[in-house]
Design a protein around this nucleic acid. Structure first.
Lengths: 229, 229
DNA sequence: CCACGGCGTGAAGGTGCCGTGAAGCCCGTT
DNA sequence: AACGGGCTTCACGGCACCTTCACGCCGTGG
């Protein structure tokens, strides 16, 4: 996921602003609303990835905003409230809220709870598991390589090489790092292994193994994976 | 879902007991553990639907218990702690906890937070629990397998294998993950079990067990379930 | 122009992993 | 007590994979 969007709902401008600044500083896209009607409208307009919602709104009761959202979306909702009573918390959580933070709140804690809520909502999109080139497609999560529509089988060693290089696209990876990553401590001098297994990788993935386009050798240094330009 | 199972981890017997009584009264199945090692063991043995975890354990730091769990499961974790500092909360939540409640806590609030955690964790029981291939049909929700119109009986171990693989269609599942999921913590080296029970699964489900079309072996790595193309 | 070192390539050898059948054991049922 | 299902354990054959080695190519430096 890139730049999660967060909808901040609070009628107090200074709190709204403090939240917006802190969220924006951490790379979130921020939308704001000052009352319940605006919140519902903004949610349906922007489809945020999370909602931070103050319960004490001037027009609609915050609980009803939760219910309104839950009618059509499962977006994580973190409640902000001055009310510290158990009754309020239970009611909000059972209405469908995901978390409940009492004002005054610590910004770090709120952000951590927001991260937790976002993490749960995005099952496994965390990494970017798919790397695609003109010649082949590598799915790091599924451990699969597809070439010309057909799956290509890689041995564990070959997969280790591909993985360490593909996870550092465009960057030079030294022999030492490759050997330690794939073979482990104590194999830093076995550069012969690299030649043999790298040849195997290129034979399986490169269109012209003798003149590789993606798995390049940097003489005396290491190797480099080059995605499509 | 019927009768969610909750693992309660706390070293103070009276708190553990209070939680267990309240949870049981509301229809939950309750498992208990008094320290971190027991918690990890119980989690892998019972596969609870949620974990209530006290941070102040006698043996392992609660944070490390969270990390230990997160290594192989996404079960919701609600932290209980006497520590009210922001640092503690942020650390626990970022380690993978889902919620953080400070002692002394209100039972109603804790239960509400637990309900919220459970609600989030089970959105997909109705999603698509049925996996169909040309050879057989697997209904994950109903725990049934049908082949050629006739039901196929799987033993608990066989079902565990089928389930963990089918829930990750197309993805490589390492031996370590399979063993921990089906047998639990401490069985990561018993790859012999895998061979035997996998052969059993293939004998029951594959048209040609010697040349499986759906339950594939990735030598030295793990196994992979391949749906129909 | 030649020597040399690094790299790619192909093949041979051995090791450990995987599939398979069967025997032994635990445990709940009859 | 006898029975049977299911899990564990073992032995064995086959094979995928890693290692090792020899050789040829290419670039660089003398």
């Amino acid at each position: 996921m890139t730049a999660p969007a967060v909808l901040v709902v609070d009628d107090e401008p200074q709190i709204r602003r403090a939240l917006a600044v802190n969220l924006a500083a951490r790379g979130y896209t921020v939308h704001q609303a000052a009352d319940g009607r605006a919140a519902l409208r903004a949610a349906s307009a922007h489809h945020p990835d999370a909602v931070v919602l103050d319960l004490g709104l001037p027009d609609i009761d915050g609980i009803d905003v939760v219910r309104g959202l839950r009618g059509w979306t499962t977006v994580p909702i973190v409640i902000l409230s001055v009310r510290d009573g158990e009754r309020d918390k239970v009611e909000a959580l059972d209405a469908g809220a995901d978390d409940y933070v009492t004002k005054p709140f610590g910004m770090d804690e709120l952000l951590a709870r927001l991260r937790a809520a976002l993490r749960r909502a995005t099952p496994d999109e965390t990494a970017e598991p798919v790397v695609e080139t003109a010649a082949f497609t590598i799915d790091l999560a599924a451990h699969t390589v597809v070439r010309d529509g057909r799956p290509v089988h890689l041995t564990p060693t070959e997969w280790g090489l591909v993985e360490v290089l593909v996870r550092n696209p465009g960057k030079l990876v030294t022999r030492e790092v490759v050997l330690r990553t794939v073979w482990g401590e104590g194999f830093e001098d076995e550069s012969g292994y690299l030649r043999v297994h790298m040849a195997s990788v290129r034979r399986k993935l490169e269109a012209d193994p003798a003149h590789p386009a993606h798995f390049l050798t940097e003489p005396r240094m290491g190797y480099r994976f080059l995605p499509d330009p």
